[in-house]
């Protein structure tokens, strides 16, 4: 928006004083959340943060590198189960989490290999198959608790027992910040540019010396790592995980968050994850919303079925996704940009 005068300016994280100021303020506000919101709402905030982490990674893969993944739920599952199993007796929490992330990353790398040859619907099917396979395998092996699922042990970090949602919140916020900054740095780095080159034209990129094989698999691994970390934390936020958490619906949800938020941008990831997560959760309990809730109840009784009302969640989600893509392909980030531009060029 403001003219950049040097390349360094383009890639630095905090550009100038106003940006630094806003960032600090934002940090402060986020830090205060557990004090202002009720316990249950902090729980929701945790869910949002978990999704933000996952989407930060997925967006790099889909938005920056231009690949499709309909099976990212699989990586989330891997991260979740791995973390819990390792934490149960082998390693403390943080190392478990990180190791689980790396395990997910390895699987991401493996999934990246077919991506070298496939694109479009073919790649979609391959990733879909992967996601489904993970769910099925986890569900059938009793080592993973089978259909019943497993419960993570008491969360303990550096000797402190984290028992409440608020404790978890700060931990998750910290991790999210670190990962967010890292993702941002990555996008603006040489590697990030290689990703973009692949997205725009992988043949041209290859002819310019970009090692497509290396970067494509790297991108998959990177996004899988983030998904794994997110999954690991998710297990502790929920307090319980089972295969039913990781169906293809999850993968579709994640992909929607990326697209609705805005491809290829950090802000987009945050916005998309937040909005869709909240929409999803609230939709399930639509009756509690003032005004709108009773209206839909009334419609249900007269035209639809009242028992099916929670499904309205999906109606909203589907509609939102379609409308965003039709009218604002840049997603929420695009809308945010428009607002910024409008105010910047006000009063014209």
């Amino acid at each position: 928006m403001d003219k950049r005068t040097s390349y360094f300016e383009d890639i630095t994280l905090l550009k100038d004083r106003p940006v630094k100021g806003w960032s600090l303020l934002g940090l402060l506000l986020f830090g205060l959340i557990p004090f202002v919101l009720a316990e249950y709402q902090v729980f929701i905030a945790n869910l949002v943060l978990v999704n933000i982490i996952i989407i930060l990674g997925l967006n790099v893969l889909v938005g920056n590198t231009g690949q499709i993944s309909l099976g990212h739920g699989g990586f989330v599952a891997i991260g979740a189960y791995m973390t819990v199993i390792l934490d149960e007796g082998w390693l403390p929490f943080l190392p478990s989490l990180i190791l689980a992330g790396f395990v997910a990353a390895i699987f991401g790398f493996i999934l990246g290999i077919p991506s070298l040859r496939l694109e479009g619907p073919y790649l979609a099917v391959a990733t879909l198959g992967f996601g489904l396979a993970v769910t099925i395998v986890i569900g059938r092996l009793s080592f993973f608790g089978g259909h019943m699922g497993i419960m993570p042990p008491q969360l303990e970090v550096w000797g402190m027992k984290l028992t409440t949602n608020s404790h978890l919140y700060y931990l998750t916020l910290g991790i999210a910040l670190v990962l967010g900054v890292f993702a941002r740095l990555l996008i603006k780095s040489r590697i990030g540019r290689a990703f973009s080159a692949i997205r725009d034209s992988d043949i041209a990129a290859a002819s310019l010396g970009v090692n497509v094989v290396r970067y494509k698999t790297m991108s998959f691994a990177f996004s899988a790592f983030y998904a794994g970390i997110g999954g690991g934390i998710w297990a502790y936020v929920l307090g319980f995980i089972s295969p039913g958490n990781f169906t293809p619906v999850l993968s579709i949800l994640l992909l929607s968050m990326v697209v609705v938020g805005g491809l290829g941008t950090i802000t987009g990831s945050v916005l998309g994850a937040t909005v869709i997560t909240l929409l999803n959760l609230q939709g399930e309990k639509i009756q509690e919303v003032p005004l709108i809730g009773p209206f839909f109840e009334w419609v249900s009784v007269h035209y639809m079925s009242i028992s099916g009302l929670p499904n309205i969640n999906f109606v909203f989600m589907g509609l939102t996704v379609i409308l965003i893509i039709l009218f604002e392909p840049l997603g929420l980030f695009g809308i945010w940009m428009r607002i910024k531009i409008y105010f910047k060029t006000w009063p014209f």
């Binding site: 889909v62 979609a124 249900s300 079925s305 099916g308 929670p310 499904n311 969640n313 109606v315 909203f316």
Partner: peptide
Amino acid sequence: VLNLLIITLGFQVFLYGLAGWKWGS
């Protein structure tokens, strides 16, 4: 490709919800 894919996914989810709402599960 990606956008069209998401549109159809969105439509699918929408119809799924609509059917579930109208006729229950």
